[in-house]
Structures are given as structure tokens and as C-alpha cells.
Design a protein around this nucleic acid. Structure first.
Length: 242
DNA sequence: ACATTAATTATGT
DNA sequence: ACATAATTAATGT
């Protein structure tokens, strides 16, 4: 009890942490080694910001465990969750989109572990490691596509369809199979869901309650399980005649 | 077809 | 006991 250390750095990072992750999977062992030797590992409690929107992008991250939400704040001060990022993906890669500040805030949805590197290493990673660039730009493209899809949804679909779609995406990207359905693998509130779909907490709550009565979903506080994905797919289809 | 306001209840530390 | 989450009804645009 005499030596209090705020947080411990993990002793030695094992190469197996990175070998199976897309940005690094094609690299030779010695490359992985030098990459790991330059990395800093940190553990984050749930609900803390890994970095803040607008702050100088000093480091980029690889999420090893947990989930983070990428959050932006509008002029009027409302929070909007842009997307969720599961373990195994890069994070805070401002340089990949030509920025030197973070474009959004990253908040841990669960307790998480991430590696990080100083941003000055970005160029050398891209230059030195075959496949790193292509893989990361692919994920950037995927994310932009997803955000774009949501913007389209906001304009065209009704609330009921949007939250149905949001739930379907969440179980596809971050779902965990349980006995009778697929549970969203991180704590998510009605508020979160409403931010994802640009509606109010109350509407999201009503829809969830209604679907629960119909046996499509089951939810406890902060946990949502989809029991009948197909029924949600049906709901997510725009109604004919509009 | 939704949001907003407000009151009420449930749930987790 | 307290704060946070979720439900529900009433009212507004």
C-alpha cells in the first residue's frame, strides 16, 4: 500500500495482440515487434474520453478490448453519436483524413484497453508497412459510408425505421449471440439510441417498449437483446405508398 | 408523425 | 439514500 501508482504500463506487449488485426496482419514479425516497442498501452474505465473533439491529434490508437463511441456535439449543444467502434480497429487516425486535430470525441462505452502511438509515426507506418495504408483507408471509407448512410436515413426514413436500422447495425457489428437472440455487446441506453437515430429519448423508449411487448426485443437497463431480427428488418423497410 | 414537458417509477451504487 | 435510467401520460407543433 506504500507505493501508489496511478496506472501501470503492461510489462511486455505480446506480438499476438496485433498479428491477427487487419492493419498489421500482413506484417513480418520483426515489424510487429518494433511497432509494439513504440506503443503505449492504457486501460480506460467505462465512460471516459480517450480524446476530445478539436484537440491536437497527438496520438493515434488501436482499440484492443472494449467499445468506444465516437461522439460529436452540435452547435446547439446536443450530443450526436456518430458510430461505435469495436475492438480491433484503429481510432483517432486524424492524419488519415488530413487533419491535425481530432474530428470527434471518443468515449469508452465499456472498460477498454488501447495501444497508442505518437502521431509523428503515422507517416512512417504508412510508408514502411505494406498493407497498413490500404487497410486503414478501407476502414476510413467504411466509416464514412456508414455515416453517410445515416444521413440519408435521417432525411428519408421515419423514426421507427431508423431505430430499427440502428438496432440491426448494432447487432451486426457488435452483437453477441445468446440463447434466444443477439445482444448488443456493450451498455446502451435509450438516450444513446436516440442520439444514434436523431430522435428523442422518449420516442426511443416507447418503440423499445412496444417491440418488447411484441417479443421482438428484450431489454434490461443498458442492455438490449434482439430476439427477432427479421421482424426488425421488416419494420426497417420504408412503407409502401410513401 | 413526431417533439416537449413533466410526473412517476425502477434500478444500480 | 442517491443518482441515473426508463416508462408513461398529457400537451404542443
Amino acid at each position: 500500500m506504500t507505493e501508489l501508482q496511478p496506472h501501470k504500463i503492461l510489462p511486455r506487449l505480446d506480438e499476438s495482440l496485433l498479428t491477427h488485426l487487419p492493419p498489421f496482419s500482413r506484417l513480418e514479425r520483426r515489424h510487429i515487434r518494433t511497432i509494439l516497442d513504440q506503443a503505449t498501452a492504457r486501460r480506460y474505465d467505462a465512460g471516459v474520453a480517450i480524446f476530445d473533439e478539436g484537440a491536437p491529434a497527438e496520438r493515434f490508437f488501436m482499440l484492443l478490448d472494449g467499445y468506444v463511441r465516437v461522439v460529436r456535439v452540435t452547435q446547439s449543444g446536443e450530443q450526436v453519436t456518430a458510430l461505435h467502434i469495436p475492438a480491433g480497429q484503429l481510432l483517432g487516425i486524424a492524419k488519415a483524413v488530413g487533419r491535425d486535430t481530432y474530428p470527434a470525441t471518443a468515449v469508452t462505452a465499456t472498460e477498454s484497453i488501447a495501444l497508442s502511438w505518437p502521431m509523428r509515426l503515422w507517416e512512417s507506418f504508412v510508408a514502411d508497412y505494406e498493407g497498413f495504408a490500404t487497410e486503414t483507408y478501407k476502414t476510413v471509407g467504411d466509416r464514412m459510408g456508414e455515416i453517410h448512410n445515416r444521413v440519408m436515413e435521417m432525411a428519408t426514413q421515419q423514426v421507427e425505421q431508423r431505430v430499427a436500422n440502428a438496432l440491426l447495425r448494432l447487432i451486426n457489428q457488435s452483437g453477441r449471440k445468446v440463447l434466444d437472440g443477439i445482444e448488443i455487446d456493450f451498455p446502451i441506453t435509450r438516450q444513446d439510441l436516440s442520439e444514434l437515430t436523431a430522435t428523442t429519448l422518449h420516442t426511443a423508449s416507447r418503440l423499445l417498449s412496444a417491440w418488447e411487448k411484441q417479443g421482438l426485443v428484450r431489454s434490461k437497463r443498458k442492455r438490449v437483446t434482439v430476439l427477432d431480427p427479421h421482424a426488425l428488418v421488416v419494420i426497417s423497410q420504408p412503407k409502401s405508398g410513401l
